[in-house]
Design a protein around this nucleic acid. Structure first.
Lengths: 238, 238
DNA sequence: AAGTGGTCTAGACCACTGC
DNA sequence: CAGTGGTCTAGACCACTTG
C-alpha cells in the first residue's frame, strides 16, 4: 500500500526532478508561487512549503520582487559538508585506510557525554566504534562513534564493509540530515597522542559531533581527534 | 527609527533567549504550538514559522504527538555559518565586542597567501582588516580579512558600524554564497598568543577561509585564530 | 479521549523589483 | 504600475503519542 505523499512534497520532488534533469535550466526562474499554486491546485502556503525545501537543499534562491532562481543543478549539495571519511578521499590520489580498533555494545553510555543523548537513547544503550583513519600511512584521525541501540538490528553484521553512513542508509533507511559540531584546539591526552603518532604537546583538533537524522529521536554521536600537522580538515558549505 | 521585527522572528528570538539563558531547560518541552499561539496572540502558522528556525539551528526537535523538545542549550560561538560574529551573539546573554586593530589598503596582497586570489583580484589590490573579537571581556578570535578593491567604492566609510557582511550586502549587493575552509590546530606565533591573552604552548584553532559571493570574480579571504579554551567554535550543517 | 505536531485551505496586506 | 516573494490570519482535518 503506497501512502500518497503530501502535496508540498510532490511539488518539491517534481521541481527537483525538473532541475536535475535539466528541464528547468540553472539560472532561470521557477514559475511564480501564484502560478505553481494554480497549476498544482494547491494554496500558496503549500507551494511555499515545497519551495522552502529546495532552498534548504541549495537548488534555488528566492529573490524579493523577482522570483525563485535556480542556482544549482546538481545533487550532493548538502552532503558534501559532512561526507564520511572514505567518500572524501576516494577521489584523491591519496591512499587511505581505516582500522577498527574497537567495536562493542554497552548498556551504559559514557558519562559525562559530550552531547547528552536523549532519555530514550540513554535507556536503549549504545553501540560504540573506535576507528583510526590514516592517509598515506600516517594516522590523521581517531574517531569514537556512538549509535543508539534502537531500530538497528544486526548492526555490526551489516556494517562489515566499514562504511557507516552507507549502511545506515541502505539497511535501515536512516539518513543524516544535519550535523551539529563543536570544534576546539586542545592538548590531547597521552593515549590519544600515541595513537596519532604525535609527540607531546602537539596541538590536536578536537571535534564533537551530533548527527541529526530523518528518524525521530535517533542521533549519532562522534568525537574526533585530528592530527592536522600534515593534513588540515577542510570543508565546504553553503 | 527601529523597524519592528516580524512576529515569527520575535517569537524565535524570545525562545532562543530563554533556551540560552537556561530559563527553558534542555530536555524540557516548549509550550505547545497552540499555547504559544494564544500567549503571543499570533496564529499557529506564525508560531510554526518561528519554531522552524529553532529546528534549523538545532535548538529543538519536534516529536510527533509529544511536542517540541529542547535538545541543545550551548552557549558557544556558532561562527561557522556565515552569519557574522555580531549576529551570532546578538541574541545571547553574552556580551561581545569587536576591536578594530588595523584597517588599510595595499596594492600588494600578502604572500604567500593562504588561498591564492584570482588574477584580477591580485591586480586590483586589497583592503585589509584586522579585528579582535571578545566575549565577556575575553579575547576569543583574531581575524585577518582581505577584500579585493573591486566594485566596493568608499568601503571603509560605509563600514563604520563594524558589520562587514551587512555592509557588503546593503551597500554593494554582495552576498556570501558559500565558504571553503581549512581548519587546523596549531602552536600560534607569539604575537598572536599575546593578542588572545594566552600563555605559551596553548593550542590555537586556525581557520583559513575563502568566501564565494554572488559577484563574479569577487572573493573574501579570512584567516582566523581562535582561543577555544573557554568557548568552542560550533556550527551546524544541513 | 485529549493533546500534540503535520498538512492544508482561502483569503489578506505588505515591501520590493522591474518596467 | 503590475507582479513577485514576505508575512499573517482564522479556520480545518489528520496522524501520532500518552494516560
Amino acid at each position: 500500500m503506497e501512502k500518497t505523499l503530501p502535496h508540498y512534497k510532490k511539488l518539491h520532488l517534481a521541481l527537483r526532478q525538473g532541475i536535475l534533469s535539466g528541464a528547468i535550466a540553472k539560472g532561470s526562474l521557477l514559475p511564480s508561487e501564484n502560478e505553481l499554486s494554480a497549476r498544482y491546485n494547491i494554496t500558496r502556503a503549500t507551494v511555499r512549503q515545497g519551495l522552502q525545501e529546495l532552498v534548504r537543499e541549495g537548488f534555488i534562491e528566492k529573490r524579493m520582487g523577482i522570483g525563485s532562481v535556480v542556482v544549482n543543478d546538481r545533487k550532493t549539495l548538502g552532503l558534501l559538508t559532512f561526507k564520511g571519511f572514505s567518500e572524501v578521499l576516494e577521489s584523491t590520489p591519496l591512499s587511505s585506510t581505516t582500522q577498527n580498533l574497537k567495536m562493542g555494545t554497552t548498556a551504559v553510555w559514557p558519562s559525562p557525554f559530550f552531547y547528552e543523548p536523549t532519555a530514550s537513547e540513554k535507556e536503549a544503550g549504545c553501540f560504540f566504534l573506535e576507528r583510526l583513519r590514516s592517509v598515506e600511512g600516517h594516522p590523521v584521525m581517531l574517531e569514537f562513534t556512538y549509535i543508539p541501540q534502537k531500530g538497528v538490528p544486526n548492526f555490526f553484521e551489516n556494517m562489515e564493509n566499514g562504511s557507516l553512513f552507507a549502511t545506515l542508509q541502505q539497511e535501515y533507511k536512516i539518513e543524516i540530515l544535519k550535523v551539529l559540531q563543536d570544534v576546539r584546539a586542545i592538548h590531547a591526552p597521552e593515549a590519544i597522542l600515541k595513537r596519532l603518532e604525535l609527540i607531546d604537546n602537539t596541538p590536536v583538533l578536537h571535534i564533537n559531533r551530533k548527527y541529526l537524522t530523518n528518524t525521530s529521536d535517533f542521533h549519532i554521536y562522534s568525537s574526533l581527534y585530528c592530527n592536522t600537522t600534515k593534513y588540515s580538515i577542510s570543508n565546504f558549505f553553503n
